[in-house]
Design a binder for these strands. Sequence first.
RNA 1: GUGGGUAUAGCGUAGUUGGUUAACGCGCCAGAUUGUGGCUCUGGAGAGCGUGGGUUCGAGUCCCACUACUCACCCCA
Length: 420
Amino acid sequence: MLTQAPRGTKDVLPAESYRWQYLEASMRKAAALAGYREVRTPVFEHTELFLRGVGDTTDIVQKEMYTFKDKGDRSITLKPEGTAGAVRCFLEHNLYAEPLPCKMYYLNAPIFRYENPQSGRLREHHQFGLECFGAKEATADAELILLAYHLLQDLGIKNLSVEINSIGCPKCRPVYHTRLKEFLGERIGQMCDTCRERFDRNPLRVLDCKEKKCQEITRDAPSMLDLLCDECRKHFEELQDCLDQAGIPYRVNSRIVRGLDYYTKTVFELITETKDGKLTVCGGGRYDNLVAEIGDQDIPAVGFGMGLERVLMLLDSDGAGIPKDPWYEVFVTYMGANRPHAFKLVQMLRADGIRADLDHCGRSLKAQFKYANKTGTQLTAIIGDEEAENGMVKIKSMAGGEECTAPVQEACSVIRSMLR
RNA sequence: GUGGGUAUAGCGUAGUUGGUUAACGCGCCAGAUUGUGGCUCUGGAGAGCGUGGGUUCGAGUCCCACUACUCACCCCA
């Protein structure tokens, strides 16, 4: 217990953190190219924010939040998603008074949901998310989809597909809801148990059922896309025009529904085909009413969240190479009483920007070489009695084995010239 | 919340119908090579078998419970 991380959490070990750093660097770059700047918001917020923002009928709010009372008797919740916090931040600091759109991203933001962990699902996971406030036009939706698509593609993720849908706005969605309920009401008796539950809770979900029988029954169900109001239809058409122009493959899937209540108009997912089936790596959409719902500004917005663990998982299976950081460039070995000389040389090298270290465990020279070998060090410096007496240092290339000797004062420049 | 699988050294595994000091590979440490790694050889350290009960003369091996891990459903990144 004491030496076990809580269920559904994962350590990122020193040997693998370079993979995260690589991802983060790619994400920062992609975001910055499109004018998004980083925002950092707290890991926890007032529970009320999520009840209002995410929607108190959603599964996330009803059964998955980490909620607790703090010592001041406030109800606090660990972020179960990234958008609500960003909206709160946007409102609290009056960012709407600055030139719009206000584009922000968060990176490696921990997200907490009390779920049953399984492949690609944790209780704490991390997201890269972008939010764009104050842009109502479909180009904003499109640029986010393109950004996510190109980012994942550039990372080497294969079998990537983009699915988009429009779920309308408060004007047209209620009409659809009524129609759908009518349609389903007549047939729900023949459908599976979970669908019957969904019928009451969230009828849209019924369309998402994987049961063959249910899929057949709902094949002729009314589609939201046929009932969009003029404004929503036009917006959706513009989005498709943008994507067509950009030339990325996408599919309109009138059945994708997202689990958060705040979406309006555009919703989208980036899905990959893995050996165990489909996996959504990125999901997002437009939320034109959320800002007004939480604050007193009526500002449209659009955004997405991308699961870092899932992206990393896909990078594993697609075998995309992430360049490894060298551990040490130079390992300084020494014999016996020459440790102070070695220590001094290491400090010199580091001051010169070279990754260097020496043995801190009292190992034999031979063991020091073994260690250097195991850590993949390119060069070793050797300080034996002879070198120490003459103020010299021997430098050896681990790959080829060739050695040379140089005065300690010139060690940095000699080593630099030997490092590729 | 529901259902399936698993649980033996740091990692991966073997442990026959329950029977003496739990085995192997990798890794780790050391030596062969007392100023030098990667190959080879030799030796060594390290688990009492997830936890707690029970059955038995005797359990890693059988039974029960719990916990954790894992997969799937639900839902989601």
